[in-house]
Design a protein around this nucleic acid. Structure first.
Length: 267
DNA sequence: ATCTATTCCTGGCTGC
DNA sequence: TGCAGCCAGGAATAGA
């Protein structure tokens, strides 16, 4: 069973729907309903958050950053996290931010997601690589240069590029015709160029369709995305490749389920 | 620098 | 039908 985890397009969709609904509102208090969700929060966080005015919401890779007048709220949805505005908290609500009129609910069945409150953008977020939707081809090639490992693990590395995850890496590698285990040093300018184009194409299409929903993902309005219909390899093990008809194969690369076409993506 | 294995967590799937 | 056991997966971490 494959499920969608929020990656760049899903987080982008969430941020776009959240921004106009949250900016200018005030957090009157926060209620952590699970100790796991606020592991990164310093003691006394609820007292410091209370009264904060929300100024701006932005995406940093897969992180959602809510800048307030007195601090920064950084949220990572990980596997099953959802951020919902003005809703009735369900059984899996882990953090409820009370707003002057309404709320912001962080819901997360598996409790992998995190919420943190800091004075400035956390170091971990500062350290992320460039955004893959914005990186130019020359810069992409520059960053590739001198890297030793295999292509898929590098693309999943958030310090190389921020925001790519398992689904979109598999989809981009397929479109570029690059095998996930290809050594980065062997890519060459042609395949590097195709990979850069494929990453930007896949992300742009997915953002336009408001992300992918396989089982859990919904945006801040609780709506599902539409990109799952366009998946060509992810979750398609055994199905014929749309380009050549060869059955899609599933292997494990970097401890992740990896889907590819053995004919279109030669080792 | 890069690799692998492990941990976190739990709904839903598999197999008996 | 019931129940145990396993799996997925982003990121942090430890150790090679």
């Amino acid at each position: 069973m494959c499920r969608t985890v929020p990656e760049l397009p899903e987080v982008e969709t969430i941020v776009r729907s959240l921004a106009p609904r949250l900016a200018g509102r005030r957090i009157t208090g926060v209620e952590f309903r699970s100790p796991l969700v606020c592991q990164r929060c310093a003691p006394g966080t609820p007292e410091r958050v209370a009264g904060a005015l929300i100024e701006d919401i932005s995406r940093h890779g897969k992180y959602i950053v809510v800048r307030c007048d007195r601090g920064v709220l950084t949220i990572h949805l990980r596997m099953t996290g959802k951020l919902l505005v003005d809703t009735t908290p369900g059984p899996y609500a882990r953090a409820v931010f009370h707003l002057s009129d309404g709320n912001l609910v962080f819901d997360d069945v598996r409790q992998f997601g995190t919420v943190e409150w800091t004075d400035a953008l956390p170091e971990r977020v500062e350290r992320l690589g460039p955004d893959p939707t914005l990186i130019s081809l020359p810069e992409f090639c520059r960053r590739l240069h001198g890297r030793r490992g295999r292509t898929k693990p590098l693309l999943l590395n958030q310090e190389f590029l921020r925001g790519l995850g398992n689904i979109y890496v598999d989809e981009a590698l397929f479109r570029a015709g690059v095998h996930p285990r290809t050594l980065v040093g062997r890519l060459g300018p042609a395949r590097a160029g195709r990979l850069h184009a494929a990453i930007q194409e896949v992300l742009a299409e997915a953002i336009a369709l408001r992300g992918s929903s396989v089982s859990d993902y919904v945006d801040a309005q609780g709506e599902r995305g539409g990109f799952q219909m366009r998946h060509r390899v992810y979750g398609k093990e055994g199905e014929p490749c749309l380009r050549c008809g060869t059955p899609i194969r599933r292997i494990v690369v970097a401890q992740r389920g990896t889907h590819y076409c053995p004919r279109c993506q030669r080792a």
